[in-house]
């Protein structure tokens, strides 16, 4: 048996590399053994992982709804269109001149003249209108000009100003700006975005609490063991390590489950959505979990689990003192 002072001086002579190697060894050991403990009580672990998984999947699903809804509005187009109807009885030459004038404006990208006949044709091509129109003797449609301004949906005040200016023109009877519903959709999406942020925050706190509570139960179940480890001089960090890794595993399990749920849901819905979109003549395709959703679940899960374990263990481990 070596003298004790020899033992301690040998300890201090360890190089940083050896120290790091030992550190990694013991952490890897703690990481794996905490996974082993988890797997040895599959029922309890599964329940925690399911709750965490659902907690992570819900904001993820809302996020997917948002992403897809945004894609829909993008498909509708970023451009604004104004329909300018001229007063009945306006001459073709006058309409042509006005169209030219409008097209020369800086804030107008394109101005297209639509004759009453063209307008009528457009209507005819719409199912159900043809018969109604054939009952008419005269063409009731005026000359019209469709305008595309240089600015987009994001500058509604410019569109309004342009519309107001157009209304002042003598020959103009009616100006229609059909952007209201797009604006409404945009504000609904904005609301949804805020709701998701709120839900993500609330559910994130929930995930931390669930992980923390499970770790509390684990700590209680291993009270005797913790006492013994403290008796022989285990530091707080050492005693806490397996529980932190436990929280990490719960979170990772929950994150994987959440990702699978999101992926499964979009995979199941992709087919029906495609059929529906094709019926409406749209090229819209459902988007699956994006990078953000994947990162949030697969990284956020373990992070929140770790956090819950940290929070729970700092409180509960302190209360266990060896009482021999």
């Amino acid at each position: 048996m070596a003298r004790p002072d020899q033992a301690s001086s040998r300890g201090s002579r360890r190089t940083f590399g050896q120290w790091l190697e030992t550190w990694v060894e013991w952490h890897a050991q703690a990481l794996l053994s905490s996974l082993g403990k988890l797997l040895r009580q599959p029922m309890g672990s599964a329940l925690t992982i399911i709750v965490i998984g659902l907690g992570l999947a819900l904001p993820g699903a809302l996020h997917l709804v948002l992403v897809n809804a945004e894609q829909v509005t993008e498909n509708i187009g970023r451009s604004v269109q104004l329909s300018v109807f001229l007063a009945p009885g306006t001459e073709a030459s006058q309409a042509k001149a006005l169209q030219q004038r409008l097209e020369d404006r800086n804030d107008v990208l394109e101005a297209k003249l639509v004759s009453p006949e063209e307008g009528l044709e457009d209507f005819r091509s719409v199912e159900g209108f043809a018969e109604a129109l054939s009952a008419l003797e005269d063409n009731p449609l005026p000359w019209a000009i469709t305008l595309r301004p240089t600015h987009g949906l994001d500058a509604p005040e410019l569109t309004e100003a342009l519309a107001a200016e157009l209304r002042e023109i003598e020959q103009v009877d009616l100006v229609q700006v059909d952007t209201d519903w797009v604006r409404r959709l945009a504000s609904i999406l904005d609301l949804l975005r805020r709701a998701i942020e709120g839900a993500a925050l609330a559910l994130g706190i929930g995930v931390v609490a669930v992980a923390g509570n499970t770790i509390r139960l684990d700590i209680n179940a291993r009270r005797d063991e913790i006492e013994v480890v403290k008796l022989v001089g285990g530091s707080d960090a050492y005693v806490r390590r397996p529980f932190l890794y436990g929280g990490f595993w719960y979170g990772l399990g929950g994150g994987l489950l959440a990702w699978l749920l999101l992926w499964g849901a979009s995979w199941t819905l992709a087919g029906p959505v495609e059929i529906l979109a094709t019926d409406y003549g749209s090229a819209f395709r459902l988007l699956g979990p994006d990078a953000l959703a994947a990162t949030a679940t697969l990284l956020g899960g373990p992070l929140l689990g770790w956090l819950g374990a940290w929070w729970s263990s700092s409180y509960h481990l302190r209360q266990i003192e060896p009482k021999p």
Binding site: E21, W23, E25, W26, Q29, V229, V232, G233, G234, Y238
Partner: peptide
């Protein structure tokens, strides 16, 4: 081995 594990002795 517990005291050695606690003090981080090489495995």
């Amino acid at each position: 081995a517990l005291p050695l594990a606690i003090s981080g002795t090489p495995r």
